[in-house]
Design a protein around this nucleic acid. Structure first.
Lengths: 215, 215
DNA sequence: GTCTATACTCTGATAGAC
DNA sequence: GTCTATCAGAGTATAGAC
């Protein structure tokens, strides 16, 4: 059955992608109003002027919609982190800048951040494909640390399991505390996020190499 | 209308408290199976063999049940922390022990911890009374730090806004990462919780007073 | 006083007409 | 691709049996 005409297909698929984009936007709005787990398909359909069953043309079920948004979140965040990598700044400065971008993105996208870093939706687990994007996110941080190690600003231990675990604990701690206690605050005025630099400094201090000159 | 007989009241109120305790237990079981936000009143009623509307005799609505469990969680955790305070250990040892008990309790009570430290339930905000219990929780940590400062093991800055914020970030970070990435692991074998001591060490190092002897 | 029976509205999801 | 019709189940609320 190879009757699908290649030419006519472009417009149809394009229209489909536009509709999916509309659904995503409406779902994010709904979640920010009613909570991540409180999103209802009827509400999403109402927001874009279609009937609930029509959503099933684009997503097999509600959990698949969550998975799509989970992946979207990591795609956007990884893109932001890559674009924010300033080639002129290096070593610890690049790491500090990365931390600021990371926390800032989470506070600007609290709905996606909750979906990505907590597990607020009963029954939802990311698909293998989406999970790979979250792995890539962790690796971006590892690359920034590796550069600082290569520059001599951090000891090798920063790249150990302990080092990578502890920096993820620091980042998750700042974001988690800020989002659950003061979700609407910005980066600079957040009770917790304003200490993001100091939190990272705790980690940096632990992995700062001892000067090798004679004492 | 003061016809209520004092004698007969004891048994009735006792029976009522027992039922409430049954409901709490069933709700916790339901949440651990279907997620915190996925708990359904019909399911809770079914577990203890009554009809859903009967739950409304004990709780005005579903959110009130969440509030009751939120408060229960902090009561239990604060109790655990107070009992675990070993009067023989002091200073940094007491603080390290407190951190272990804190993280351990959260991993042993993941459902309550999620309800207490994240905001997984759309529309739920703790009542003023319950919120006070969460304040008391923060103050317990402050007391342990104050003792270490008094013993000379930590600098005064440990009790500053920065110091208190950063230690809450460290604790929340360990718990948050462990619960969302590996919820069923225990304290000792958790990918994140096994580094709880090292995470606290980052904080302790930042607030360790410099020795005052001559250099 | 306590619980049951019943009803109302909304949810996620499916089947089938057009 | 979108619709109508429909389902089982949810949370909530009220009326009434005992």
């Amino acid at each position: 059955m190879v009757l699908t005409v290649a030419d006519g297909d472009g417009r149809r698929q394009r229209r489909r992608r536009e509709t999916i984009e509309e659904i995503r936007q409406a779902a994010l709005e709904a979640m920010s109003e009613d909570g991540v787990a409180g999103m209802s398909l009827s509400d999403v359909a109402r927001r874009i002027g279609i009937r609930p069953p029509s959503l099933y043309v684009y997503f097999p079920n509600k959990l698949a919609m969550y998975d799509d948004l989970f992946a979207l979140g990591f795609r956007r965040m990884n893109e932001t982190l890559e674009q924010a990598t300033d080639p002129t700044s290096r070593g610890l400065d690049a790491l500090r800048h990365g931390m600021r971008v990371y926390v800032g993105w989470c506070l600007e996208n609290p709905v996606l951040a909750q979906l990505m870093f907590w597990r607020p939706v009963p029954g939802f687990e990311p698909s293998e494909e989406s999970y790979r994007l979250s792995i890539a996110n962790v690796e971006l941080i590892g690359v920034a640390i590796a550069k600082a190690v290569a520059a001599g600003d951090l000891s090798d231990a920063a790249l150990s399991e302990e080092g990578l675990t502890l920096i993820s604990v620091v980042g998750a701690g700042v974001v988690s505390q800020q989002l659950s206690n003061e979700p609407s605050a910005g980066f600079a005025d957040g009770r917790f996020s304003r200490y993001a630099a100091e939190a990272l400094d705790m980690w940096i201090a632990r992995y700062t190499p001892v000067p090798k000159g004679p004492r």
